[in-house]
């Protein structure tokens, strides 16, 4: 097995008095796509938010290449190479496409490198190049998702945390997004993918974890999970 990039050990998070994560442990290896499945409120988004330190962990650890990054300031986590594409895309609606991408490279001081990275994102998403001067809020849902991913790529991440990239998109667009995630992964970026759409997620991922009310109830290779009876019943629908 290759190196462990991201490792959660007994991670606990609570909102007020209520535990959203009740001690979850998972490992993501270098070059993998790992998916985190579960229904609404299972704690999938909270897991990502805890990794990127948007919400504080109250127990357990997050390790990145063996280094403890639990509750480090969010901008330091980004600088290390862990970047979180939040649920709902969260485009800066009144900034144009180019400015949105520039914000993604905020930690970068080198303008030449910044331009290079913008070119790379435009190669991956030609439609963003066409609309570079348009306000982010005026893009279609699919384009906004591309922009959100492109903006994250501007940091040149080692690990990409994707929260529901398929949300609210037409099936054909979803497939396009999934293909791009695959392309990014082939380029060497490790991916932790949170999805409600278990079918597409399992098709794409190497391994998966299933979360239920803050606990991991199942884990395994994606092809095994996609044949598992309880998963088929609960998340695949037929």
């Amino acid at each position: 097995m290759s190196e462990i990039v991201l490792s959660l050990k007994n991670l606990e998070t609570k909102y007020g008095q209520i535990y959203a994560l009740k001690g979850i442990s998972l490992d993501v290896y270098k070059g993998e796509i790992v998916t985190l499945l579960g229904s609404n409120g299972a704690g999938k988004s909270t897991t990502l938010k805890t990794i990127s330190s948007l919400v504080p962990a109250c127990g357990g650890t997050v390790e990145f290449y063996g280094k403890n990054i639990t509750n480090a300031p969010p901008h330091e986590i980004v600088e290390m190479g862990v970047i979180h594409v939040p649920e709902g895309r969260r485009i800066f609606k009144e900034l144009n496409v180019l400015e949105n991408l520039e914000m993604g490279s905020f930690t970068l001081k080198d303008d030449v490198e910044r331009r290079k990275r913008i070119e790379r994102v435009f190669e991956l998403f030609p439609v963003l190049a066409e609309r570079s001067k348009q306000a982010g809020g005026l893009l279609s849902g699919g384009e906004q998702q591309m922009l959100a991913i492109g903006r994250a790529l501007m940091t040149d991440p080692k690990v990409l945390l994707l929260d529901e990239p398929s949300m609210g998109l037409a099936p054909i667009i979803v497939q396009g997004i999934m293909d791009i995630i695959k392309t990014i992964n082939d380029g060497g970026t490790t991916i932790l993918l949170v999805e409600q759409n278990a079918k597409v997620a399992l098709k794409l991922a190497d391994r998966g974890y299933v979360l239920e009310t803050g606990e991991i109830v199942m884990e395994g290779n994606a092809d095994v999970l996609s044949k598992d009876d309880s998963i088929v019943k609960a998340y695949l629908g037929h």
Binding site: L54, P74, V78, I83, H84, V85, P86, L95, M103
Partner: peptide
Amino acid sequence: RAISMDLDCCRLMGV
């Protein structure tokens, strides 16, 4: 300007 639109998202960008 970005912070005035979405502070949490800016934190995710490393701002």
